[in-house]
Amino acid sequence: MIRFEGVHKYFGKLHVLNDVNLHVKKGEVVVVCGPSGSGKSTLIRTINQLEPIDEGKLIVDGMDLSDPKVNINKLRAEVGFVFQQFNLYPHLTALKNITLAPIKIRGTPKKEAEEQAIALLERVDLAEKKDVHPSQLSGGQQQRVAIARALAMKPKIMLFDEPTSALDPEMIGEVLMVMKDLAESGMTMVVVTHEMGFAREVSHRVSFIDFGSILEEAEPAEFFMNPKHERLRQFLKQVLSPMH
């Protein structure tokens, strides 16, 4: 579904992605973690071309992103993206945030799009908030609406860029539960997160990235019980028991 082959990316002189190779199969959930500034956000943003790559090959849903002729809007319609800061449209109600793209891009009739949106809001347990504007929702609620908005396009892939990092601690659980349900429904997912509980319980594979390179990649049990790379051992120690 997603295949990175020797991908490089530079911000000026800064080498943010250094020879990245990563393969995500259909239905797989892959967690990407690493220290801040390691390039993990850039990595996930290249998948829907919010950041273009400079070298190498990146194939998403059969489309080669290094080909200048690729229709980027068509690709993005198939890939849902969930942001750290939610980025809901503040001038639209929760319902309209969800129905806008299906109506305007997919050409779904309004009534049908609204029925689907209400079903999605029920799925994220927010049906009663359909006519509310984002400013009247809590962070956790906004993020759940944002997930529903991405799902409304019936994407083949869902990308999550630190979806719980901007949330108050008591709201993290509600968002992770929605993501867990989604993973169990067989969605292909790439998740950048520091939530190691989610990585351990839900993901099929965990990737550790530092200085723009993937240093280690393993199934969660192996990744947490038997980390090989010294930097990963340090990182896990800091993330799992920050006081020691």
């Binding site: 919010l50 993005r76 993206f81 942001f83």
Partner: peptide, 8 residues
Amino acid sequence: EASRSSGF
């Protein structure tokens, strides 16, 4: 970014 990500 959010809007472009939806395919607009």
